[in-house]
């Protein structure tokens, strides 16, 4: 889908929210939902940062780390990809305290979602590194660069462009997964919706607004990643032309 269509959808979604906000039946719920949305955004941003760190770390360790660390990274990736996000969230929330480690719900949310998406992200990073042409590695070797230098100066900058679209998808997945934190008592957007729904039974206005708000967040994220991709690939093309 073209960036123009996405921007049009975003404008349309915002317009619909704007129109609904003039209706008493809808505007009633907006402040509470916006409060929830702030928490949703906080968790999404922190979770994404953790996911990037874990993804890059796990990928590098799996590719170049010493054997025991490599196994550890593989186990991490398999466990977090192989079980579902909600199970991980519940495990950290309900089971970890039984081992004497009690994290507060917000931390559990960020850690669980970050580790979950980081596991998928490590596959993205690994794939992108492996897809850089062999000739590039050989050229680095011929220039007698150290492996760290190769990665930092030559390979990762090229792999970066290839990574942007799949990471964009992962960030969207993470943003959507934040709704799960409502099930461990955090009052994010999904939680607010549930709570208001139980109190007022105004199901249609509440869930319509909530869907629109998630849509706006997703679209902003998608459009942002597209722009980033465009800039990054333009930079790479310029590098190629030079």
């Amino acid at each position: 889908m073209g960036i123009g269509t996405l921007v049009a959808m975003l404008a349309a979604a915002l317009a619909v929210i704007g129109v609904l906000a003039t209706q008493q039946a809808y505007s009633l719920f907006l402040p509470g939902l916006l409060q929830g949305a702030v928490l949703t955004i906080e968790i999404a941003i922190l979770g994404s940062l953790l996911a990037i760190v874990m993804g890059v770390l796990a990928a590098l360790v799996r590719l170049y780390g010493p054997a025991p660390l490599r196994w550890l990274a593989t186990v991490y990736v398999e466990i977090f990809r192989g079980t579902s996000a909600l199970v991980q969230l519940f495990w950290l929330f309900f089971v970890l305290p039984q081992f004497g480690v009690t994290l507060d719900a917000f931390l559990v949310a960020v850690v669980a979602l970050g580790l979950n998406v980081g596991a998928y992200g490590s596959e993205v990073v690994r794939g992108a590194i492996l897809s850089v042409a062999r000739g590039q590695w050989e050229a680095c070797t011929a220039l007698n660069m150290s492996r760290a230098q190769m990665l930092r100066r030559v390979i990762l900058p090229q792999a970066f462009v290839a990574m942007i679209p799949p990471w964009g998808n992962l960030f969207i997945e993470l943003l959507k997964s934040t709704s799960l934190v409502s099930l461990i008592t955090l009052s994010d957007l999904a939680f607010k919706a549930q709570q208001m729904n139980q109190n007022t039974f105004k199901t249609i206005p509440i869930f319509t607004l909530v869907l629109l708000m998630y849509l706006v967040m997703s679209l902003v994220l998608t459009i942002g990643m597209r722009l980033l991709e465009r800039r990054a690939s333009a930079g790479l093309a310029r590098g190629k032309a030079a």
Binding site: T5, I172, K176, A193, Q194, F207, L211, L215, S218, T222
Partner: peptide
């Protein structure tokens, strides 16, 4: 395209609630 984008841009959990409650 728009329909697919709408469905993929919003959380499954909310969609479950939506169908169950709305």
């Amino acid at each position: 395209s728009v329909l697919v984008e709408l469905i993929r841009s919003t959380p499954l959990l909310i969609q479950i609630f939506f169908i169950y409650f709305v």
